[in-house]
């Protein structure tokens, strides 16, 4: 019994160290988009962490822009449809039955307010942009900052 208590105490100590380090995006389907397409041709992927994002007050910024890749676009939409569950749809634009713009406010995870922004443009070419933002401020503030800095 005593050893079980000690074991549990140890697990607690380890948990306190490790769990906060698991990234907040790890539970999201869109992570697969970054992992699968991030390093491919015709793709621009950006990751910026807090020290470079002082102007925006973001703690993490990840974006991926994929050009002329319809399967990738479908894959993003598929991932988003899963991440939509439990998230607040801030914006959802459907064109010809296909979602072209999606803004999602995800449930807060730890200290992080999380946003997913997706847009598809067809002209002059097919371009899919997916952005994932983590912020210590409210998602509303995060969006306001994006507008201000634009």
């Amino acid at each position: 019994m005593n050893s079980i208590k000690k074991y549990l105490a140890l697990m607690l100590v380890i948990g306190n160290f490790i769990i906060p380090n698991l990234q907040a995006q790890d539970d999201l389907e869109i992570k697969k988009v970054f992992d699968q397409y991030g390093e491919k041709k015709g793709v621009i992927m950006v990751e910026l962490s807090s020290e470079m994002l002082e102007d925006y007050d973001f703690t993490l910024f990840k974006s991926i822009t994929i050009k002329n890749n319809p399967p990738a676009a479908d894959f993003i939409r598929k991932c988003l449809s899963k991440d939509e569950i439990g998230a607040k749809k801030v914006k959802h634009v459907v064109s010809n039955g296909i979602p072209t713009t999606i803004y999602l406010q995800l449930p807060r995870k730890g200290d992080a307010f999380r946003l997913i922004l997706f847009n598809e443009s067809l002209k002059p070419e097919l371009k899919n942009t997916l952005i994932y933002i983590e912020s210590k401020n409210d998602s509303e503030e995060a969006l306001k900052l994006i507008i201000k800095k634009k």
Partner: peptide, 23 residues
């Protein structure tokens, strides 16, 4: 490139502002 991806999201400032209202 980060800023470029943000500007890809929407060309209209009003569009984004409307989205904030929805929040």
């Amino acid at each position: 490139h980060a800023l470029a991806s943000l500007s890809d999201l929407t060309n209209s400032k009003n569009e984004m502002e409307e989205s904030i209202k929805n929040l």
